[in-house]
Design a protein around this nucleic acid. Structure first.
Lengths: 189, 189
DNA sequence: TGGGTGATGTCAGTTACTGACATGACGCTA
DNA sequence: TAGCGTCATGTCAGTAACTGACATCACCCA
């Protein structure tokens, strides 16, 4: 472990993430420079860019872990696409317990206030859909159906997530997501 | 009236668009500076940024016109969401006649090679979905169904477009899109 | 005890983007 | 025809995101 005054305190990446989110919440994303974030974490601007590919990425590194867990909910056995998608959605819902809702709201408010951050979030969702598409084709689903099923799966998740952070504490994520899926099926009948 | 034109040579915006696309195709997006684009169009960097909000936008200004036409395919009378969506998709297909396919391919290749451009495209699609959501709610559809229907509509369009530029000249856009929609309905049964 | 490794600092440089102000052609009007 | 206002453009200085090259310093290990 490191001494208090050591040049290298551990958890540089985590400190940068915390400092960034805090500054974004108080000053806004555009009103915060990378140099400020780094200084708040006791580091330099150059070090920030060694931990994150760009300024936006500091809010999205956790998303990579999310993608991994999200995809792990996919059944190994090849069944019909719809069954697999439901499996993924059930697994995803478990990632958003009730006590994470306030944190998700705060984060959401930062992203909602900035178009550049929305772009990055959309890219992450797109990458998620593409990964899901690959996983489905690897399980024998034809390319067109796989792309469609994956996109639909992500759409259901995104819509459910938006409702979950927007509404009160009435329904759990799972309940919301089941309702969204049922509604989509009704819509296309 | 040339109110919209410049005073010396007209069509500054168009010249910048053409120069940009040409340079992106030969040098790549990252390998091309805004100063180069402006010089190729006989203008200065500063003028480029008076016509386009940022470097990426030069490839997406046409998209705004596209959004307008896309939404104009929405029936005025309030029917069920599914019927309205089919109307929008039919109208959208008319925007992509066979002779536009090579141009779409070229443009697609530039965007596919750069993540920043993909982000912008996703943002445009998202804005399209939100506009469609608003239009649907304005026609009496409840918020949740409207969001879901709009997202699904855009998903079908995007999937169809991807297939259209990817495959040969066998099927028209309309044929592809109808097949995609049918497949989605079968998927969710 | 000395060297290798890896995370950090330092610094110079490029490029996207912006604000402030100057300029020069065009249209309008007296 | 002269004068005047407008507006797209040019010029210039400045900020901030990001990068490459090289130095430094703590830690581990032989």
């Amino acid at each position: 472990m490191m001494g208090i005054m050591g040049r290298w305190q551990s958890g540089a990446s985590g400190r940068l993430k915390d400092a960034a989110l805090g500054l974004f919440l108080t000053q806004g994303y555009d009103g915060t420079t990378v140099a400020e974030i780094a200084a708040a974490a006791g580091l330099t601007e150059r070090t920030f860019f060694r931990h994150f590919a760009d300024k936006r990425e500091v809010l999205f590194v956790d998303q990579d872990e999310f993608e991994r867990v999200f995809l792990s909910g996919l059944p190994e056995r090849a069944e019909d696409p719809m069954t697999m998608i439901v499996g993924v959605l059930d697994g995803a819902a478990a990632l958003f317990p009730e006590d994470r809702r306030p944190w998700s709201r705060a984060r959401r408010s930062v992203i909602a206030a900035n178009e550049a951050l929305q772009e990055r979030e959309l890219l992450k969702m797109s990458s998620l859909a593409m990964a899901l598409t690959r996983a489905l084709t690897a399980r024998g689903v034809d390319a067109a159906s796989a792309a469609l099923a994956a996109e639909t799966c992500v759409t259901v998740f995104r819509t459910s997530f938006a409702l979950w952070v927007a509404e009160g504490e009435r329904r759990t994520f799972t309940e919301i997501q089941n309702a969204v899926l049922a509604r989509l099926q009704a819509l296309l009948t």
